[in-house]
Each structure stands twice: as C-alpha cells, then as structure tokens.
Design a protein around this nucleic acid. Structure first.
Lengths: 133, 133
DNA sequence: CGGTATCCGAACCGATACTG
DNA sequence: CAGTATCGGTTCGGATACCG
C-alpha cells in the first residue's frame, strides 16, 4: 500500500487527454519522430543525409515534414550561401525536449519487439543500422 | 547498470530508430493514445463510455481502433452475457506500460501549449474536461 | 545539393443508418 | 448496449521528373 501511493505519481495518475490532442498532429505523422531522433543523434544533418538516414522517404515527404517541424519550432534550418548549396537542420529547444520525451516510448517499443533488449547503437550499428526497406 | 550509463540514457544517448518504426502504426493513429489513456484513467470503460469520453469519435472508428489495440495485446475486452449486453475494456500489461511511456510526451505537450502548467484532472476537471468538438 | 511540381493511389476516418 | 454496413471525402505520402 505504501509503495503504491509512493508510485502514484508515475504509475496511476489520472491523465488529462487535452494535451494529446495537440500532440497527435505532430506525432501521428509517419516520419516526424524518426526525423527528430535522427537529427538529435547527429546534432545536425543535411537534407540528403536525412534522406539516407530515413530509408525510403521521398524528397517531397521529407521536405513537407521538415517545413511542418520548422513551423512548429522544433527544428531549425540554417542555409549556408555556398556553391554547392548547404543546408543544415538542427533541433531547437522544444525539439530536444520532444526527443527526450519520446525515449520511454522507444524503450517500450524496443522491449516489446525484441524480448527485453534495448536497442542502442552499439547493438544496432548506427548509422546504417537495421532499418530495412 | 552504472550511474553513468543511466545518465546517458536520459540525457544524450544515441537513439536507435528501429523501434520507432514499430511504434508508428500504433501511435500515429488519431485515437489510440486517447483511448489508452482514457481506459487507464478509469481502469475499465464500456463502449459508450468511451464514445462520450472521446468526444467526436464515430462508432465505426472506435470499433476499428479497439480491434487493433486488442490484436496488439494492449487492451482486453470482456463480454458479459447480460441483457442489455455489457462489454468492458481494460488495459493489459503492455497497454499500461505504453500509457506510462506516453506520460512524458503528454507533459511535454502540456508544457508547450499552456506555458508551464501540468494538465492533470484537478486543473482539467476530468471527466468532461475541456476537449471540445 | 537541396529542393519543387505533378500525379496518383491508399489509408484514414467521419456521418449515418441499421442490427442482434 | 454494442456494435456493423455502407459510403464517401480528405489527407497522406510514394514515384518520378525537373529546377536554381
């Protein structure tokens, strides 16, 4: 009984559904979490690096999604006036926070799909890990 | 696990993208998180209670989504052979874990949209809180 | 290199009416 | 009460070709 009340906050609190409404538009897009986590993994990434990292995404979809994330203030786009052109995407503060907030979800998913192993780069051999088309 | 690796986990780890692939089909559906969190809030809910709780969902969409969640092993459906019929939905272990894993995400979203307040029932007046159509 | 433009099918999901 | 059946609109996102 004492332990339960101790854990109340983390375990069985009542959750307000309202904030989820706001999350859904972001989280429910097929590529957003992948993009946020990828950029976070490398700190900064260029367009074609993201294309490679997110195997299977089309340039249109990537472009569209990046615009949404930028408009949401989650990522930042830095354009270098060079030839050939260079553009780098980085996480802004909110994006970093989002990425942290997603970690438990990833761990939950990893635990589910592979018995009980975590899935970190050591096992996963990032970059070029085992996402397959 | 050592203290350092624990810090790594929470702060600046490289995240494997693979598990996210598996999450997306679940998390990206418009209603799944709402349903999981709702059931968790009440421990068990009936079909029409869910209909009321999730304002705006259609019976077809709710039915479809519940089937997916049941097939994923996240929720359990208990049918009472009564007249009128009664069916109760509860979270299974994986669903409970998912709900916990989603809490940081909700807190992130709540913080974003409302300055820095948390959004728990006390503020939010569950049930019948401020989700509006 | 870092995107757009266009086209298009598929998936999602809401409204409504009906059933055991 | 707890759904199913049907229909149809919108949005998502993939393929491909092209542009500055």
């Amino acid at each position: 009984m004492t332990k339960e009340s101790e854990n109340m906050d983390k375990e069985c609190q009542q959750l307000c559904l309202c904030p989820i409404q706001g999350i859904i538009d972001i989280v429910s897009k097929k590529w957003t979490l992948l993009i946020i986590c990828s950029i976070g993994n490398y700190e900064k990434l260029r367009f074609n690096e993201l294309m490679k990292e997110l195997k299977g995404i089309s340039p249109k979809t990537l472009s569209d999604t990046l615009k949404v994330l930028e408009a949401e203030g989650l990522i930042e786009k830095e354009i270098f006036k060079e030839i050939p052109p260079r553009v780098e995407y980085t996480l802004k503060e909110d994006g970093i926070e989002l990425r942290k907030a997603v970690i438990p979800l990833i761990e939950w998913a990893a635990k589910r799909e592979s018995g009980s192993e975590k899935c970190y780069p050591e096992q996963c051999k990032l970059p070029g890990h085992h996402i397959q088309p």
